[in-house]
Design a protein around this nucleic acid. Structure first.
Length: 261
DNA sequence: ATGGTTGCACGGCAA
C-alpha cells in the first residue's frame, strides 16, 4: 500500500498537479492538508476520475481543511477537534485495517513565545492535547499511520541552518520537545528517517518568498509520516517528491510517499 | 534589520 501526504495549499488550485502526481506515483491513499474549501465545494469529481472512489473531507472556508482520497474502501471515518475549535485539522479513516490520521498542526505564527503570541500557544496546546489523547484514550489494537503537515522540523538536518533557525517558529526547542512528546505517545516511528539517514538534509517545504527556492534551498522538513511500531517491519520505502515544488502553480509544500507491504 | 510571496476573497489575515 502506497500512502502519500501533501499540503496542497488549496485543493482547487492543485487539480492538475494532483493528476500529474497520481500519474507519477499511483498512490493508494492520498492525504491532503490545507484544502481551503468547504465540503460542498470540494472537487470530488476530479479525484473520482483519478480512481479515488473513496473520499473523506473536512474543510472550512478559506483556511485549513484535510481530506483522504483512497482507491481502497475507507471505514470508520471521523474527525477530531482540538483546543475547543472546529477547525478541520484532523481526519481519521481506516484503510485495509490501518487507522490513518491525516493531521494539520497549526503553524504557530511568527513569534515563538506563547505569552506574546496566541497562535504559538495554540500550536503548543494542540501538540499537548493530541499527545494526551493518544496516550490516554483506548485506541484499540489497529496499526496506525499519522501523517501530514506537523509544522515542526525536528532534526538539525531538517532545516537549512540549525543555527539560524533556533528562534524561528518550526524549529524552536520548545516545539521540538512538544512534538517529541506526541511521537512518544504511541512510540511512533518516523517512516521517512527510517530510509533517509538523519545525517542527510531533507526538506518538504520552501517559502514562496525566496527569489529562487531551489537555488537558495532554504527548506524545512515540516511534513511527516509516522507509523506505530508494529508497522515498521512492513515499511519498504519512503521518499520526498521535491520536483513538485517547481510545478506551476506550486504548493509551498511537497508530497511525502511511504510504501507498506 | 527588513522584506520578500501566496491563497482566499475582495480587506486583511494566515501561512
Amino acid at each position: 500500500m502506497r500512502l502519500v501526504t501533501w499540503n496542497v495549499n488549496s485543493v482547487r488550485l492543485r487539480i492538475e498537479a494532483l493528476q500529474r502526481l497520481d500519474q507519477a506515483l499511483r498512490p493508494d491513499v492520498l492525504c491532503l492538508q490545507e484544502t481551503k474549501v468547504v465540503d460542498p465545494l470540494f472537487p470530488r469529481d476530479a479525484l473520482l476520475e483519478l480512481g479515488y472512489a473513496h473520499l473523506a473531507v473536512s474543510g472550512m472556508k478559506g483556511y485549513n481543511g484535510v481530506a483522504i482520497a483512497s482507491r481502497l474502501p475507507l471505514e470508520d471515518v471521523r474527525t477530531q477537534s482540538w483546543c475547543d475549535r472546529e477547525d478541520c485539522r484532523h481526519l481519521i479513516a481506516t484503510v485495509d485495517g490501518i487507522e490513518v490520521h491525516c493531521l494539520y498542526v497549526p503553524a504557530g505564527g511568527d513569534i515563538p513565545d506563547a505569552e506574546l503570541n496566541p497562535r504559538f500557544a495554540h500550536k503548543l496546546a494542540f501538540f499537548d492535547q493530541v499527545a494526551a489523547w493518544f496516550r490516554q484514550a483506548d485506541h484499540g489494537d489497529r496499526p496506525k499511520v499519522l501523517l501530514g503537515d506537523l509544522n515542526v522540523a525536528p532534526l538539525e538536518t531538517d532545516v537549512w541552518s540549525h543555527k539560524q533557525m533556533q528562534k524561528v517558529v518550526s524549529h524552536t526547542p520548545v516545539e521540538i520537545a512538544r512534538m517529541a512528546e506526541l511521537q512518544a505517545s504511541l512510540d511512533w516511528v518516523d517512516a521517512v528517517r527510517a530510509f533517509v539517514p538523519p545525517s542527510e538534509r531533507l526538506y518538504t517545504w520552501w517559502s514562496y518568498r525566496a527569489a529562487d527556492w531551489s537555488l537558495s534551498d532554504r527548506g524545512r522538513r515540516l511534513d511527516h509520516v509516522w507509523v506505530t511500531p508494529e508497522l515498521a517491519p512492513r515499511l519498504t520505502g519512503a521518499l520526498v517528491i521535491r520536483e513538485t515544488r517547481g510545478w506551476l502553480p506550486p504548493s509551498d509544500h511537497v508530497p511525502v510517499v511511504v510504501d507498506l507491504v
